[in-house]
C-alpha cells in the first residue's frame, strides 16, 4: 500500500526485490535534487507494465512526475518526453518481460539516439504479474506454466545484448545492495547519454534467486554474482563483453563509452546552427508557394 495514497491497494510480495530498487531510486533522486539544485518535478519516471511498473505508485517522499503506460513501450515514451524536453531528467523502469521481450525492439533505436535517459531493468527471470510464465531471462529447462516440459528457448544474456546494441553505459547490480544501487542510478543519471542499470531483482513467489545470486556456503551453493574486479577497464568494450559472457553475473559498472560528453539535444542544436536553419513563419512558408 502506498503511504501517499491510502486507497491504492497494489502490493508487492514480501521480500520482492523491487522494494530495494524503489528505495535506491528515492535515494538517487534525493541526492540529485541536492547536488543539482533541481526540483523533483523536473524528473519523469516512465513505467512499463508488470510488477516493476507499479513502482511509480509506491514511490515515497517528494514526488516526481510519472507515466505508467503500456506494456513494452517505456523507451519510446521516454524518447518523446526527453527529445523535445531535454531539460527534464528521464528514467524508465520495467521488468525483464517488459524490457527484454515485448519491448526489446526499442533498445537498439534508443541506444543509437543516445539521449540522456536512464533505464532501470528489474530482472527476476519470470513473468510475475501474470503468475509465473517463462521470460527471456528464465533459465533453460526450467518448468513454468508456459514451459511444462522445461524451457526450450535459450536464455538471453541481457548485458551482452545492451553492449551489442550500442548502449554506452551499462551497470549490473543486485536489488539487495540498496546503497550501491542508489549510487549507480545516480551516476547513470549523470552520464550524458543513454544508460542501462540492470538489476537482479528476485521474485520471491515464482523465481527466488536470492540464495543462488549470493551463494550459500552451508548448502554448498557457489554465488552466481561476483564483484567486478578493480582491474576491469570499463572503457574497453571487448573487456566488457568478456566480463559479461557468463555464466556468472558481474556486479558493478560494466561499460562506459569514452568521449560521451555532448548530449544528443545539444548535437541537434549544433546541427541546426551549423546548417544555418532559419525558423520561418507559416505565412512566410505560404508566401513561398505563391504562384
Amino acid at each position: 500500500m502506498s503511504k501517499r495514497n491510502a486507497l491504492y491497494d497494489f502490493k508487492w510480495c514480501p521480500g520482492c526485490g523491487d522494494f530495494g530498487v524503489k528505495v535506491a531510486i528515492e535515494q538517487a533522486l534525493a541526492r540529485r535534487a541536492v547536488e543539482n539544485q533541481e526540483s523533483i518535478e523536473k524528473t519523469v519516471i516512465v513505467a512499463g507494465i508488470g510488477c516493476s511498473g507499479n513502482l511509480v505508485h509506491l514511490q515515497e517522499g517528494p514526488q516526481p512526475f510519472a507515466l505508467h503506460g503500456i506494456h513494452g513501450r517505456a523507451l519510446p515514451i521516454a524518447y518523446g518526453v526527453k527529445g523535445p524536453r531535454p531539460d527534464l531528467n528521464v528514467l524508465t523502469v520495467g521488468g525483464d518481460g517488459d524490457m527484454l521481450s515485448i519491448g526489446a525492439e526499442h533498445i537498439g533505436p534508443q541506444a543509437r539516439r543516445n539521449l540522456n535517459i536512464t533505464t532501470i531493468v528489474m530482472d527476476n527471470g519470470i513473468y510475475g504479474l501474470t503468475k509465473g510464465q517463462a521470460s527471456p531471462t528464465t533459465n533453460v529447462d526450467v518448468v513454468t506454466s508456459t514451459t511444462r516440459y522445461g524451457k526450450l528457448d535459450d536464455k538471453l544474456n541481457p548485458l551482452m545484448a545492451y553492449l551489442g546494441l550500442g548502449v554506452g553505459y551499462v551497470v549490473s547490480e543486485l536489488s539487495s545492495r540498496v546503497k550501491p544501487l542508489g549510487e549507480a542510478i545516480k551516476a547513470a543519471m549523470d552520464y550524458p547519454g543513454f544508460s542501462v542499470v540492470h538489476v537482479q531483482s528476485p521474485c520471491t513467489t515464482y523465481n527466488d534467486t536470492y540464495a543462488i545470486l549470493k551463494g550459500d556456503e552451508k548448502k554448498g551453493i557457489e554465488p552466481l554474482a561476483f564483484p567486478i574486479p578493480d582491474t576491469h577497464d570499463v572503457t574497453n568494450l571487448h573487456a566488457a563483453m568478456d566480463l559479461v559472457q557468463g555464466p556468472r553475473i558481474p556486479i558493478g559498472l560494466v561499460y562506459r563509452r569514452e568521449g560521451e560528453s555532448v548530449a544528443a539535444d545539444q548535437r541537434l542544436l549544433d546541427a541546426k546552427i551549423r546548417t544555418k536553419v532559419e525558423q520561418k513563419s507559416v505565412d512566410a512558408l505560404l508566401r513561398e508557394m505563391v504562384i
Binding site: L67, G69, R73, P76, Y79, V81, P84, R85, H106, Q279
Partner: peptide
Amino acid sequence: NLVGKDKFVGQASSEIESIASLVGAGFAGR
C-alpha cells in the same frame, strides 16, 4: 520546415514508437 527554437522532429523506428513517443511528448506539455 518545423525548425528553430524548441521545435522537435524525430524519426521513430516504427509506428508503435511514433505513437508512444507522441504520448510522451504530449505528456511533457508539447
